[in-house]
């Protein structure tokens, strides 16, 4: 293993000496896409809710996103390398008592958590730690929503009736007890699988969704989501799944673990490893 790494480094160095401009080029935005990820091109994200003086939409820089959600098999490798994230030694501050609940044991996903099924029952901290281990990070809400707004054949999924129908139908169906494997659905326009239809996913800034059960009392903004005026001020009142995601995110705490909540990694284009 070590020898192999040394050889790789040596080859890379030779390569760099031979073609300095090429190596430099890899660090530019148009650089190489990391394995298992796709480049989601820059675009604009229109939030479901915004403060009065906020612009209608925000720019999203190009970023890399994992094609697939992180699986139980992937997560097992993470735990092997980072034993403190084992279920039995998990600290309650970082994950509630249901952490990896569907796993058979500390180092054994078992029959209810197939190797190739998305890993769930894990907290924001766990998802964040996994991403950091991979040299990645969690996508922001803006990045995730922007990527997930793409339909099957076009970037603006809202104008793709078949996509809208599929998404709605999934959001209306309860999650099965045993989650299916990742990658079974069609990729979307950006080449990403399973943003809808498999699990919900953690966002880096999930705690910027300002609606909580107690938000009426404790926050000063975005009261629009409540009661009869719930959809007033929302950008697209027909976008029921977006309401659900917004409400779901705002109900989460960082240590919560949920049966149908998983995650995937992202990486900025201009900052390697960030």
């Amino acid at each position: 293993m070590k020898r192999q790494a040394t050889v790789q480094v040596a080859v890379a160095l030779l390569w760099a000496l031979a073609f300095p401009c090429l190596v430099q080029g890899q660090q530019r935005p148009a650089g190489k896409t990391p394995e298992g990820m796709v480049l989601v091109p820059a675009g604009r994200y229109t939030p479901l809710f915004r403060a009065e003086k906020d612009p209608k939409d925000f720019p999203v820089s190009a970023f890399f996103l994992d094609v697939l959600p992180v699986t139980n098999g992937d997560y097992l490798m993470f735990i092997r390398a980072n034993p403190k994230w084992r279920r039995s030694t998990m600290k309650r501050l970082f994950a509630d008592g249901d952490y990896l609940q569907s796993w058979a044991g500390d180092m054994e996903p078992g029959p209810k958590a197939a190797n190739n099924a998305p890993v769930t029952h894990l907290s924001w901290f766990a998802a964040k730690a996994y991403c950091a281990w991979k040299g990645k990070r969690l996508p922001t809400t803006a990045e995730w929503e922007y990527a997930a707004a793409a339909g099957l054949t076009r970037a603006d999924g809202e104008n793709d009736p078949e996509f809208v129908r599929q998404v709605r139908s999934w959001y209306a169906t309860p999650a099965p007890e045993t989650l299916p494997e990742v990658g079974r659905s069609r990729t979307n326009f950006f080449g990403v699988h399973d943003l809808h239809g498999l699990t919900w996913e953690w966002a880096a800034d999930f705690n910027t969704a300002m609606v909580t059960g107690d938000a009426r009392g404790d926050t000063g903004l975005e009261r629009q989501l409540f009661c009869g005026s719930g959809s007033e001020g929302a950008k697209d009142t027909g976008n029921f799944p977006a309401f659900m995601r917004y409400g779901f995110r705002s109900s989460l705490k960082a240590s919560y673990t949920v049966h149908n909540l998983g995650f995937r990694g992202a990486r900025s284009v201009d900052e390697q490893g960030k």
């Binding site: 906020d54 501050l93 999930f206 000063g220």
Partner: peptide
């Protein structure tokens, strides 16, 4: 962001640079 998550505090910066936040 991490400490806010631990305290159960939600916050969001608006275009004017002000923060909406849990109290």
């Amino acid at each position: 962001l991490e400490l806010a998550a631990l305290l159960g505090v939600k916050f969001k910066k608006d275009a004017r640079g002000q923060f909406a936040h849990s109290n």
